[in-house]
Amino acid sequence: MTCYIDQMLRVGLLGAVLLLGAGLVVFSVLGAIERGRVSRSRLRAFARRHRLTITVDNGNRVIRYLATTRRWRTTGLVAGLLGSVGWAWWQGGLQFTFLPLFAGWFVGALVAEVRLARTSFGTRRAASLESRSPSLYLPRTAWWLGPALAVASVAGAGYAWARTGVWEPTVWLLAGAAVVIAVVVNRVQARVVGRPQPAEAADVVAADDAIRSRSLHVLTGGGVTLVVYCVLGQLAAVAHLFGEAGSTMQGVVVVGSLIFPIMGWAMATAKWDVIRSTTEIESW
């Protein structure tokens, strides 16, 4: 018994050391790659999605945004990868699963938005008297999609319990996770809309609007995908309780887990015109 424990400790310790080493290597390589480099094609893609004209005055703002978000999203992705591999190693195997990677990436995206909200003010401050609302930056339905799905997740858990009379802790855990994700995403989205806007030239304000819109699209696409994964997990957990309908539910889970990330990606990269950003500025 003691020998077995010693062996497990040695394997665990070796795994942890290897994992730490791999993490350090990956982070330092990513850090070297990511340090503020934004390709011209990436900048063009951003400008195209919002019909934004990049100018001398707003270019740096967009580049800074793209660099910051990419750095944090990549960091989250790597953390998710290391966490996933580390956990699998701890369990005595080695496997890659999509969900921890995606969840890590999304947490990175959330952190990036929180960091972008930091602003310093001088003694002379200016602000526009134009109101900003979420619908300026994102379709109204997309704004409420995550919370609606979270409510559906809780309702679905209740329905499954009432119908089968079986208490499945996993189903309620996933419903709770869906609610937490929806609330966190909604709060960060509200923070993105509410963060200070510079009262500057039209091209700078247009870039700021485009940045807000892109952030909201990414948060919505990622958040909705994660909530949908919770719902699919619930379906998978209760499928065996529903007899023949259970196999259909399993099919929905398999197809959904392939389709919904693609839909989330499409939502995150969708084009959006912030109406007041269409002012024509000198071409780039």
Partner: peptide, 29 residues
Amino acid sequence: QVARMIGAGVLPAETQLPPIRQLAADLGL
């Protein structure tokens, strides 16, 4: 400033002012 803009007709009747939180955040107040 807002009173001056209203008086001069630059902010016409029915114009919606930004929410308190938004203006406060934009001005850092």
